[in-house]
Amino acid sequence: MDFFNDHKKLFTAAVVLFSILMIFVAIFPAIENQTNNASLPDSQPLTDDEMAGKLIYISEGCVGCHSQQVRNVDMDKTWGSRPNIAADYAGITRTSFLQNTATLMGTERTGPDLTNIGVRQPSLDWHLLHLFNPRAVVQQSIMPAHPWLFDFKEKPNDGDIIVNVPAEFLQGKTGKVVASERVLQLVTYLQSLKQVKLPGGTPNPEFLYKKEKKAAEDGAGEAEDLDGAALYAANCQSCHQQNGEGLKGAFPPLKGSKIVLDENPEIMLSIIMQGYNAREEYGVMPAVGTNNKLIPEEITAIMNHERTSWGNTGRKVTTDEIKKLMEALKKPAQ
């Protein structure tokens, strides 16, 4: 055919076909989405420090392992309270003259999703130690250490934030580990990563592919059915450690803790639900229970795990007891 023997016609045809399709699946949807989506009313633009932190996040290639998207499938519930929508990303524009827009949605989850990390793990102390060497807080972690974001100082100045790094992770270096401005910015950015509420009563999009709930065989045994160890691993372990001994100078032990072993679970529950910052030698405890939206059954399972593991011999609490205490906790807050 003449058409196929004329290189001008042939390649023009191929390019035209390709371009039409490209406009249809890439350019047109992209333009439509960037013009028709706006940031949610509750969302805050990044502060200068947070933006500087984001640049470090980009520069260190964190997106290679950490996604920032909660998909609308049931298994992603761990990472956020609702699936992400286009509006969540609408406020993100070109990073700089040299760098493209970075929604940082990612395509791999070698590490956890960070969409909601500001809610899930707000502790500065934890993040600093974790960034210095992740294995100091999570033994099995394979995340790279980032010691170049820290300074070693023999005599820290006033106002320097000192990170209590266990000796085995210092790799023979001496002096105090001091958080640099860069790492503080990075942590500020991580702390700013929070899912924003949808405006005025808009229902959250649904999570699809729900796990089929096994019908509870008997209602009373519900709390026991929940795996306290797994819930502990997901919510508490990164600070208090698997052996319940915490980390010296950073996170207090639960093993043998008076609060944990107390006959009356009220203080323990209030710390889980509201956080705690009373002791100089340890980092601040975030309000894990409230942040992670734990239900009374889950809290009961976690508390019972903590009260009866690692040689602890505390009394087991019941779901009803915890429910009542939780309601009591809510009242003064209102």
């Binding site: 350019i27 992209a30 990303y89 609408a90 993100i92 070109r94 827009t101 970075a102 929604t103 949605m105």
Partner: peptide, 14 residues
């Protein structure tokens, strides 16, 4: 690489 359609979710589509 052109910046005209890269804002928000446009970046991800591209």
């Amino acid at each position: 690489y052109l910046p005209f359609w890269q804002n928000g979710i446009g970046e991800t589509i591209l």
